[in-house]
Structures are given as C-alpha cells and as structure tokens.
Nucleic acid binder design. Structure first.
Lengths: 191, 191
DNA sequence: ATCAAAAGTTGCCATAGGGCAACACACATC
DNA sequence: GATGTGTGTTGCCCTATGGCAACTTTTGAT
C-alpha cells in the first residue's frame, strides 16, 4: 500500500497534505534478514513498510531471542524511545522477508512536526494506536492462555502464522517452540 | 506534589506556562474505593493524582478482577482510548486510598492543545512515557518469572507492596493470590 | 539432484503455578 | 469484648508449560 493512502485511511487529512508528507520519505528495498535498528545503537530513521514483514526482538538473560512485535505491511516501524529521544535502542528490528520501505530521518520528521499540523496529528495517532495495541496485547496475556492467544493471532494476522518461522511466533506468544508445536497439533487433532 | 512542579520536572517548560496549564485543572478530593472511570462509560475527564494510590482493572472471562496498572502520586491518570476518542472505556479506574486529584475535561484539554504548544509537547511526553512503561512491563512478562517480577516491583514501587492488598498485586503480576503468598514466604525464608 | 542447515515434531520427565478448602489473623462496628 | 468481613496463609493435588534429546521435514545453496 502507498504511504499516502495509508495516512488518509488513518486520519482525516486532505490528499495534497498526505502527498506532501509522503514526499519527505525516501524509497528503499531491503532484503530479508536486514537489521533496521540495532540494540545499543541510536536509531536514525523511521520506516514505512510498504510490503513485507518485520519483527522486533531482544535477548533474555539466558540469551534466548524474544520476539516482541511483528510488523506486516502496511505499517510504520520505529523505536519511539530511541528515535525521538536519540538514545540507544534496547531492541533489534529485523526484516523477515524482502521488504519495500520508505524511510525518513529525524530532521525531516521534526521539520514536518513544526510545519505540518496534520503530520503532528498523524504522529499522535500512530503513538496512540501503538499504545492501544500494546495494551490489548498485555491484556491478552492476563486473560488468555497460550492456545487462545495463538488462535487470536491466527484470526487477526494469519499472514504471520503462515509466513513466519514458528520459533518467532512462539516467543511472541510467550511460550517455547515445543509448546507451540504441541498447541498446533492439539488444534489440528481436536477441533 | 503540585501539578506545576510535576510538569516542569518532566518537560522543559517555563514556569509561567506550567502555571497556566495547571490553572485549567480543578481540585477535588476523592475517597477510597471511588471509580474514576467505569467500563462501558465514556471517560469525561483526565486526572492528576496529587496524593494517594489508584489502580486500573478489568474482568477476565471467569469474572476475576485483573489489575492492569497502579498509579502512585504524583501521576497522571486517564484512559487514552476512551478520553481522546470519546468511546466507552474497556476498564475501570478505582482509587485505592483517599486521593487528592486535579481534574480537567476534554474541552479544556483540546483548548490547551490548540493554544499552548508546550501542553502539546507535554501530552506527547505523557503518551510516550506511558508507552515505554507498558512496553517494559510487557518485556518483564517475557523475561522474568513471577518471583522476579515481584522483586522488581518491590524495588521500583515499594509503596504499592506496602499499601495495596495482596490480591491486587497478584493479578498485576500475573499470578494468583495463593502463588504470590507462597512467593513472599519463599523470599522471607530463603534470602 | 544433492546435501547441509534450518525448521518443526514428539517422547519423556521436571517444574511453576492454579485452584480448592480450611484455617489464621486483623480490624472495624456494634 | 463479641462478631463479621476482608485479607492473607497453607496443605493438597492437578494442569500447563519448560526443556532436553532424538528424530523428521522443509528449505536453500551449489
């Protein structure tokens, strides 16, 4: 999906303004397995994912990777804390497929923030949406068990279940790959 | 803590501006056990907690209360989704002690948003802080077990452990009150 | 087509935490 | 001081999930 259309879809904004905002982004193609943001480094860019899938992950104290979030196009991707505060990121962001992205650097974001009120509004919308999504995720951990969370993800984002290796999905759901494999089996054998 | 000082502490802003912002809030005292926001109702106000403790909670599918967040003064308290989008809240917000609050309604917030750039900035800061805090919480669920989460809470917000009934703390940590009671015992008997 | 590496599955046993029921304790009210 | 309600503890057993090791399947590179 094009960035313009993505913006218009999410916030009431005249098309020319959306086009203007989109003009500050630069197109890029990124191959599978690329780290867009690295732990310990300060994020210099924000991304719009035009096509493809990405994930955010970190390591626990045993050195195991934990996937904390998936991004499926169309989506915006950045590390709020690192990008806006210009401090080292605590997580990695990695493409899981070949991706087409649009990128924008902090300078351009700040320029747009000051000069395009609709951009501010869009930014606030993005932040709120992210907060709400995270909150829902947190609640699902309290209310549901692993199997229910898996079924919910399958319903909401089947693309992830289909295209992403099980181990990443497992840690995202808060279980091991062994457990998730058993959950799958259970679902298949007893519907 | 006074709202002015709270604002100044969190965002670079001249005191007169902070005073101006604070002037849009109205003082109130609220007794223990009051619901500030109710599930199913649209939140009309945002709160600054000058003193006291509050919590946010909801019910799972078994009818059990789950505490999703604690607020210890000084803190701002609102339901972003319900307040800003004016849609029904999905959760309850309840005072756990007698509280002194300052309240502001949506109209005043919007007026300030349009007329005080520093207020916008402060709002964005609040939202970012909330997002980051929630994200940290989410990560702690992936990385740590119940005992470790308890010890972390004890370190970060001892006031909550001291003053809030165990059952609320338990559901906040994602365990039953039985398990939390056992975790406590374990910590006492084997340090 | 072949082969190596990555991904996924499964048997086995270990462990964390759930949930009931009974009990202990504190404190507020009368 | 008696009584009741809310709070916290604990014994018991059960279930969900963890984690290792061995295995099968899929995928990707040459």
């Amino acid at each position: 999906m094009e960035l313009e259309d993505y913006i218009i879809q999410l916030t009431p904004i005249p098309r020319p303004k959306a086009t203007l905002i989109a003009s500050y982004f630069k197109a890029q193609t990124v191959k599978k397995g690329t780290l867009l943001v690295e732990e310990g480094k300060t994020s210099k860019q924000s991304y719009f994912l035009k096509s493809g899938i990405a994930r955010c992950f970190l390591y626990d104290h045993n050195g195991n990777e934990i996937t904390t979030r998936f991004y499926t196009a169309p989506a915006t991707l950045n590390d709020f804390q690192s990008f806006f505060k210009q401090e080292p990121s605590k997580e990695y962001y990695e493409t899981l497929t070949h991706c087409e992205t649009l990128t924008i650097d902090l300078e351009a974001v700040q320029y747009c923030f000051h000069n395009i009120p609709e951009f501010r509004e869009w930014g606030r919308m993005m932040l709120t949406m992210n907060y709400v999504a995270l909150h829902e995720r947190m609640i699902s951990f309290h209310k549901f068990d692993a199997k229910e969370r898996y079924l919910e993800l399958l319903k909401q984002k089947p693309q992830i279940i289909k295209e992403v290796p099980l181990k990443y999905v497992a840690s995202y759901l808060g279980v091991t790959k062994y457990s998730l494999s058993r959950i799958r089996k259970e679902i298949i054998t007893s519907p």
